[in-house]
Design a binder for these strands. Structure first.
Length: 930
RNA sequence: GCCCUGGUGGUGGAAUUGGUAGACGCGCAGGACUUAAAAUCCUGUAUGCAGCAAUGCGUGUGCGGGUUCAAGUCCCGCCCGGGGCACCA
């Protein structure tokens, strides 16, 4: 009997489906385990072999955990809203709902083909109204909440109203403006509009203003992705930054908690570090500088180096800073206007990245130094960003690289506060040494001067110590169609949530979900509004006008892990019973490209839901496993310039050639299938080929796997040719899960051969089933128990490539021993079930079992079979291994030392010298130092 | 530019805690079976030098330094590739 993988895999896929083997129950006494993949965006290109890498890993782990006795939740769904579907709709007129549906169906088919153990009953799709109903609901929770800095948690906005009525806002300073104060009387006398505006300044989901890329020619707002080299990707039209009213999430209120609770997470240090850097906590001071010649006007800067305050030689404001207009003198007005126009065309990235090119403009204004009363000029420059700190800095050229470059470029005199440490060529940025030229800080060590400076600043009443976060509030509006509509209606320009009584709306209007209306076209609305603005009958309600923005991609993905726990619940996003049972995700697998965005937002939403009492835990993902990319291996043919002639790689150097991409599916290894290539495109049909050794050899290069590079390999093709089990094991065998590596279809043969070889332990081509009940030998027990141990440990640490290698070693050794014994082979079928579920299920049932191998307990290894009592030690002289000697593990060191020193080879290398040191690491090695 | 990450044979990678570098697989070379092929099996395969050979000696984990009895692994300085940088998902 041959290993007929196609028939076997088809059979067991049907069995699993019929028996509902993957159905997961919420009611069980078993301990839970929740393992989750980052759900995919279903793109039109379908899955390529790179996508399932993480899914296979999590599938193995999920099956393994189930064999270990856990109730395992391992769901899958689709991140179905997004820009690509909308762009496709713009180009083809096909509705995103239709193309998304089609793409999901294709993804589903491809995923099923690989044999994953997902409980598809629990599938979620972010674009499903029954799903986004709850995304909108969570948005409303955020809208109806504020962050209490005293209690350090989100609270209902109604409680804030009660506080305002009693005592005004004295105890709860306004998050976006500490100066904004009112008492109870003032609150009560506010008109409703003003009260709502005030509350808006506290809400966790609030409206503010932000800049977007505006493309006049296309009449639309563009994503960063759609802007390439300062022009629109489509059409190459000019773009500028434009202020727009937007929704935001006040994630900054959570900065400190997001930072400190990182400690509790089992994530890689790199991940945590990236999140820390993104949050960007820094300690420093806010300092006010009075503007000369103006009453009550000052520039507030944030500095992390208050110790350098006497080195200030100029001030720099962000070009967008509110004060720029007020400060600019009539003589400088024109120049400042021109400069601001230039900055409008620049992305934040460009502004930060190009440090070599110094630009800026003098406002004509000066401020007075608070301590030494020097007059300090005020500039604007693109290197200061409006969104960070106060949008203004005190520039200390002797102590900061960019300030130094700026001063040199504009020939602003530099004050040296570091004495000999500053060499006039570059800034001195170390915090070692003492200060000079620094008034009351003279002679003080730099490291200690900061605190002294802050005290002086506070005593003088011109500023205070301040913790600053780089983290900014998250923009939550998109001027797009294919996203969640906001449950918001405007009355006289004032936003109300649909559940508010003030709306005086018909109950039907107050229901969730607010469904996305069907539209005819996807063109943007007027004034940079999204396509929804064109749908008059939807926008106009008897209560007021609907919000026409939609929510961003991360809205639906910020909480989807909760919905899987209770996906069909119509009363709430997930029952408290369900969330209390499953709690946080035990292992979350996905790429590092989500290191900050998705993971940070998700963490914030979880904390907010926790604060408001909806769930009982405040971190979504306990352990995070990063997966690398599988890259494509592109193939190239070499066309002789000016001719329709291709020369094989080895000969290309002799001609003047251009490398042309060849679809990898026409290439076997590096040998080109010339006929397939000729049929690919008409222009190649009668091309001429110059071969070497009768073959056309292609060049190869490792790149991202993508359609445009013709290096995409479809898992369906691989599964058809080798089977899902081979595919799964090969993906794992390629290398560590977190490392990027290129796909090479050729290498899969080895894994396929391995499965066939394993099959032959159970089946003989002529005799069929050849498993016997004979008692196993010590050697056989040793190999299977070693494998049980190694594979179990490797799965636990996500080292699947080494498990596959161990399976190979195991099968190689059992084959060499001619082992066909039940005790050994039954165990093997169980431990390989998580990697190669189809073949394992077939073998398991051949042993007359009636239930799935998934419910067979993972066997325990027994130390007695594995333990060795001797060890072949490498013996080194001065660190160089010279000979191998075998000793019992429990030998006494003195005896071992005697024997080693008496060895002829060792004596030869000791060259008659006495040994200085004798190093013996039990079970590892021996080293003689002379 | 900034943050994170990786670099080991022809090739994917192994070496889990500082302890025999190259497990396992691919490729390649040689062989067995076969009329032939496929499939399967066996042997060899980091590199230089010496040797008919067994083997011996040296070199070797991106580059340059350092710590250590011992470094792919730790430290310092560089080079190159990948991911992210707030509206791609």
């Amino acid at each position: 009997m041959e290993y007929a993988f196609s028939a076997i895999e088809k059979k067991w896929k049907q069995y699993w489906q019929q028996q509902q083997v993957y159905k997961v129950d919420n009611d069980t006494s078993k301990p839970k385990f929740y393992i989750l993949d980052m759900f995919p965006y279903p793109s039109g290109a379908g899955l390529h072999v790179g996508h399932p890498l993480g899914y296979i890993a999590s599938d193995i782990y999920a099956r393994y955990k189930r064999q270990r006795g856990y109730n395992v939740l391992h769901p899958m769904g689709f991140d179905a809203f997004g820009l690509p579907a909308e762009q496709y709709a713009l180009e083809t007129g096909q509705h995103p709902a239709v193309t998304t549906e089609k793409n999901i169906a294709r993804y589903r088919e491809q995923l099923d083909n690989i044999g994953f153990c997902y409980d598809w009953d629990r599938q979620v799709r972010t674009s499903d109204p029954q799903y986004y109903k709850w995304t909108q609901w969570i948005f409303l929770q955020l809208f109806h909440s504020w962050y209490d800095r005293k209690q350090n948690k989100a609270r209902p906005i109604s409680e804030l109203v009660a506080v305002f009525e009693k005592e005004g806002n004295n105890n709860h300073i306004c998050p976006d403006d500490a100066q904004f104060c009112f008492d109870a009387k003032a609150w009560k006398s506010m008109p409703e509009k003003e009260r709502r505006e005030t509350l808006m300044r506290y809400r966790l989901a609030y409206q503010g203003y932000a800049e977007v890329w505006w493309c006049e020619a296309l009449g639309t707002v563009l994503a960063n992705d759609e802007v390439v080299n300062g022009v629109s990707e489509r059409g190459g039209y000019p773009v500028i930054r434009k202020q727009m009213r937007q929704w935001f999430l006040r994630i900054t209120e959570y900065a400190e908690r997001l930072l400190t609770s990182l400690e509790t997470l089992d994530w890689t240090d790199a991940m945590k570090e990236m999140q820390r850097n993104w949050i960007g906590k820094s300690n420093g001071a806010e300092v006010r500088f009075e503007v000369d010649g103006m009453v009550d006007t000052h520039i507030t800067v944030f500095t992390t180096r208050p110790d350098t305050i006497f080195g200030v030689d100029f001030m720099v404001l962000a070009p967008e800073h509110d004060l720029v207009e007020t400060l600019t003198t009539p003589e400088q007005k024109h120049e400042i206007e021109e400069y601001k126009k230039y900055v409008q065309s620049r992305s934040e990235r460009e502004r930060m990245a190009e440090v070599k090119q110094v630009t800026g403009c003098f406002t004509g204004a000066t401020v007075t130094h608070p301590f030494n009363k020097r007059k300090i000029p005020v500039w604007i420059s693109e290197y200061v960003l409006a969104g960070y700190g106060t949008g203004a800095i005190m520039a200390v050229p002797s102590g900061d690289d960019r300030d130094h470059a700026f001063a040199k470029h504009f020939e602003i005199p530099i004050t040296n506060i570091f004495g000999n440490n500053y060499n006039e060529q570059e800034a001195y940025t170390e915090k070692i040494g003492t200060l000079e030229n620094s008034g009351f800080l003279n002679g003080i060590e730099i490291a200690k001067a900061g605190d002294i400076a802050i005290r002086a600043i506070e005593d003088a009443g011109i500023g205070k110590a301040k913790v600053n976060y780089k983290l900014r509030d998250a923009g939550f509006s998109r001027q797009r169609y294919w996203g969640e509509p906001f449950p918001i209606i405007y009355i006289k320009g004032m936003p109300y949530s649909i559940d508010e009584a003030e709306l005086n709306a018909h109950p039907a209007l107050q229901q969730l979900p607010v469904e996305l209306p069907l539209v005819e076209n996807y063109k943007p609305g007027p004034e940079g509004e999204g396509p929804l603005a064109n749908v008059q009958e939807w926008v106009d309600t008897h209560a007021g006008m609907r919000e026409t923005n939609t929510m961003p991609g991360y809205a639906g993905s910020s909480w989807y892990f909760l919905r899987y726990m209770d996906p069909h619940n119509n009363d709430t996003f997930a029952s408290r019973n369900a969330t209390d049972y499953w709690r946080e995700v035990d292992i979350y697998i996905g790429g590092t490209e989500h290191a900050v965005g998705h993971l940070l937002y998700s963490r914030m939403w979880t904390k907010a839901l926790y604060d408001l009492g909806h769930i009982g835990f405040e971190e979504p993902f306990k352990k995070l496993v990063n997966q690398g990319m599988i890259q494509g291996s592109s193939r190239f043919a070499y066309r002789v310039n000016g001719e329709n002639k291709f020369v094989s790689k080895g000969l290309a150097a002799q001609f003047d050639t251009t490398a042309v991409r060849v679809d990898v599916n026409f290439v076997n290894g590096t040998e080109l299938n010339i006929e397939a290539f000729k049929n690919w495109r008409p222009e190649y049909a009668d091309a001429e080929f110059v071969l070497e050794d009768g073959k056309y050899i292609c060049g190869a290069e490792v790149e991202k796997m993508s359609k445009s590079k013709y290096n995409v390999v479809n898992p369906d093709d691989i599964v058809a040719q080798y089977g899902a089990d081979t595919f799964r094991m090969y993906e794992m065998f390629l290398g560590p899960i977190d490392i990027s590596k290129p796909w090479d279809t050729k290498g899969i043969e080895g894994v396929h051969r391995f499965l066939k070889k394993m099959w032959r332990l159970y089946f003989d081509e002529q005799k069929g089933w050849i498993v016997t009940d004979d008692a196993p030998t010590e050697a056989e027990l040793r190999i299977i128990h070693k494998t049980i141990k190694k594979v179990g440990e490797d799965i636990e640490r996500f080292s699947f490539n080494t498990s596959v290698a161990q399976f190979m070693i195991c099968v190689n050794e059992l084959s060499a021993l001619n082992c066909h014994k039940r005790t050994i082979l039954e165990a093997l079928s169980v431990i390989i079930a998580s990697f190669a579920p189809h073949i394992a299920e077939e073998l398991w049932h051949q042993f007359s079992h009636e239930t799935t191998v998934l419910d067979a307990p993972f066997p325990k290894y027994e130390e007695q079979y594995i333990a060795e009592n001797t060890k072949k030690y490498p013996v080194a002289v001065n660190g160089k291994t010279r000979v191998e000697m075998e000793f019992p593990l429990d030998i006494e060191e003195s005896i071992l030392q005697q024997e080693v020193l008496a060895d002829a080879t060792i004596q030869k290398w000791m060259d008659g010298k006495e040994h200085k040191k004798f190093i013996y690491v039990k079970g590892k090695m021996i080293n003689v130092v002379v």
